[in-house]
């Protein structure tokens, strides 16, 4: 369904037969599907699943329903990396080779990795998880400030390029990039499955979790690591995608009404992937020749969902 929609219309049954290997589709259609639509759909699935899972982990870890995958400053770190490349790079009039997709992904990963390292160093010194949350937000503010200083001095073209990156994009990923993305996401998912039990004991708060035999320091380290792998790789390959990580765990909790991670974890992966596919389909504006930035769609879908949940339920249980 998602694959059949785009600026060139391809009928649904043609897509299906093309995917199944028959030759009903024309060569052009075949090409569009295999090198553009398919990678995009897979990117959407990976992005939605990875962001929702890291959102779920962060909400449990910080015992805060407003926590999302980016509270630790991971996306702002990535933005800083990209901004340094695009805006800072332009100040020195560097060659345009630097601004290709691959180097953007590398800059974003480097940026989020550096912020992550800072957070991990701080996390080993700070005992209070809430302080960690605030520190993450502060890191976000610092990088945002740095980015705005750079954009003030940047050239217009590079500024535009930066803004386009920050819109988020599920397209223009090559199969080899998708392979890396998939490996990282699956690694994050496997790690979190191994940590479902400590996640469940964290539902009682850190003190109780400790009394149940949990190694708080180690669990904290691994959970931050998982989130950075998941949210970091999404940001690196698809840009900062808003709201999915925050909204999907809440949506899932409304349906399953249990905080048990053994139920929530697979459900969140599934819902995240589905919602992201829907957002992507919407952003292609069926029938039109251009597509909207996917970040705008996720916010347009995500924010009302969160508001609706709050109004309907008085309090956000988690």
């Amino acid at each position: 369904m998602n694959i059949s929609l785009g600026s060139v219309h391809i009928p649904f049954d043609t897509v299906l037969s093309a995917l199944l290997g028959s030759d009903q589709a024309t060569e052009t259609q075949q090409y569009i599907i295999s090198s553009y639509r398919m990678p995009k759909a897979i990117t959407a699935i990976l992005t939605g699943a990875a962001l929702s899972l890291s959102g779920l982990i962060m909400q449990t870890f910080f015992r805060n329903p407003l926590a999302g995958p980016f509270v630790l400053g991971i996306s702002s770190g990535a933005s800083l990396g990209v901004a340094l490349l695009l805006l800072g790079g332009s100040a020195f009039a560097t060659v345009s080779v630097l601004t290709s997709g691959i180097s953007l992904a590398i800059a974003a990963s480097l940026g989020s990795f550096i912020v992550l390292l800072c957070i991990l160093v701080v996390a080993s010194r700070v005992r209070d998880t809430m302080a960690l949350l605030i520190i993450g937000l502060m890191f976000g503010s610092i990088t945002t400030a740095a980015v705005s200083v750079m954009s003030y001095f940047a050239r217009m073209e590079s500024l535009q390029q930066y803004i386009f990156w920050s819109f988020g994009s599920l397209g223009d990923l090559s199969w080899s990039q998708i392979r890396i993305f998939a490996v990282l996401s699956i690694l994050g998912i496997i790690l979190s499955i191994a940590f479902m039990k400590p996640l469940n004991s964290l539902l009682l708060g850190e003190n109780y979790a400790k009394s149940l035999g949990m190694n708080v320091q180690r669990v904290r380290f691994v959970l931050i690591l998982i989130t950075s792998i998941l949210a970091g790789s999404v940001t690196a390959f698809a840009g900062p995608i808003a709201f999915i990580g925050l909204a999907v765990p809440h949506l899932t909790r409304q349906i399953f009404r249990t905080p048990d991670h053994r139920v929530l974890l697979p459900a969140v992966l599934l819902f995240g992937a589905i919602l992201m596919l829907i957002c992507d389909t919407l952003s292609q504006l069926p029938g039109y020749e251009f597509s909207l930035p996917v970040n705008a769609i996720t916010s347009l879908v995500g924010a009302p969902v969160v508001i609706w949940l709050l109004v309907r339920k008085k309090s956000m249980l988690f």
Binding site: L203, L204, G205, R253
Partner: peptide
């Protein structure tokens, strides 16, 4: 201290007390 997860039912909460004895999945 208060329990942060208000959605936990009594049975689920009590079952969490069994964690030191359960396997890696907590089943």
């Amino acid at each position: 201290e208060k329990i942060p997860a208000g959605n936990l039912t009594a049975a689920e909460l009590i079952a969490l007390g069994r964690q030191p004895y359960t396997n890696w999945l907590g089943s």
